[in-house]
Design a protein around this nucleic acid. Structure first.
Lengths: 226, 226
DNA sequence: TTACGATCCGGACCGAGGTCCGCTTAATTT
DNA sequence: AAATTAAGCGGACCTCGGTCCGGATCGTAA
């Protein structure tokens, strides 16, 4: 009744922190109870599905990632895909899981200015820039995975980012409504917005980058006078 | 070959303005060339479809607005719905058109603090609050109409809002990247975000409202010291 | 009034996401 | 090793958004 437990789909829950707790070990905490611990065949199929999906993306772009196509490419029934990932969004999210964990590890325990060791303001700047570029790297995937407004903000990976921003904000502007501000700030890095700005408005990444820096400065009230 | 022209679906294009041009007449400008001017039967069917859709929403919620259901309720073929509105999003957008125009009229030519006559900063504050409440009023509709990240930012109604913010910003912080800032600010009023904050996080509207006020103050650097 | 052409209409058709349920298989227990 | 059971599997099936094209209709011009 207890199966080998690996390749979890969702990020581990990020405990709400009032204090700057930047322990890398956090990444490993809390994976116990809510990870279903797949059966051997299920885990194997899961891996094959993810691999197949990645291959399909590489070959035909995100639009080519049809649930039936993925199932066929993985030589698996269609129902299996849905059983494992819930829906298409879940599958795409799972594909982004690796990058998400990497980013999370970077700002939780990596070197400054992203990780602990730098000033909160510097970390916040670096954080936004990091998110920006990593999202651009896989923009199509992010866009495709972003349908459905409901889960967009409650996904663990997004929650982790928001919580991190909130923590940094609390160290910089403790008197502000950091919960709200963190949501606002993170939302300004919305993949759909990035897509619009870069691809539809033709803004270069440098502009978005300095836009984030400027926004942080304004929001935290740490603007150098012009 | 020239038909009666009424009940246009899209908002009139909002000409890019460097100067504060707040003439109500703007609402009527530019409706000429790109409005197709429907044929009589087409216009009649269009009206029936919108009415049917509204009725369906009232009865079964937004989820009940199926293209086939709307067509059936309007006693019209399914193809007609798509011909007229392009897709489901288009239909839902058209349903929001009235509110959009009203809001636009309010901040273009209505009484202060929303309309011209008040200080730019006051107008910006009032603008966000107005958008906030109007979106909450029809939140489900806004959410359903918001699928597809591509058109979310390029729709005329959204563009109009963003342009207006940009115009106000230029009067307050001319040295800033107002284009970018306006997108950021408007995105902080994203219906999906509002949904998450009010319904998933349980934040009261007052908090969102003061959050906007505070955000505007921070972004424009007009914060009163605590 | 009649003829003409552009526009529109309708519903059959398709593809893809998502559900369901009977069957299979892996892990556990005796 | 055999029995038990929870989990997984597969693919038929459904719904719904979106497309297409032959035929009907409207507005116009002769």
């Amino acid at each position: 009744m207890l199966y080998a437990c690996f390749m979890s789909s969702a990020l581990p829950p990020f405990p709400p922190s009032q204090e700057p707790l930047d322990i890398p070990q956090l990444l490993e905490v809390g994976m116990g109870p809510e990870e279903p611990c797949l059966r051997a065949d299920a885990a194997r199929n899961r891996a094959r599905l993810l691999e197949a999906a990645a291959r399909l993306i590489a070959e035909h772009g995100v639009a080519g990632v049809t649930m039936e196509a993925v199932a066929a490419a993985a030589q698996v029934g269609k129902g299996t895909v849905f059983r494992r990932f819930g829906d298409r969004t879940g599958l795409l999210m799972a594909l982004l899981d690796h990058s998400d964990r990497k980013l999370q590890a970077d700002f939780l325990g990596g070197p400054p200015p992203l990780g602990p060791g730098a000033l909160p303001l510097e970390r916040l700047r670096a954080f936004g820039v990091a998110v920006l570029y990593r999202r651009v790297e896989q923009l199509d995937l992010h866009l495709a995975a972003q349908m459905e407004p409901t889960r967009r903000f409650s996904h663990p990976a997004v929650t982790a980012l928001r919580t991190h921003i909130a923590m940094l904000l609390r160290q910089i502007v403790p008197e502000a409504d950091c919960e709200l501000l963190s949501q606002t700030l993170l939302n300004s890095l919305d993949p759909a917005l990035i897509h619009h700005q870069t691809r539809q408005c033709g803004m270069p990444m440098e502009r978005l980058e300095s836009g984030w820096i400027d926004l942080v400065a304004r929001v935290t009230g740490t603007r150098a006078p012009d």
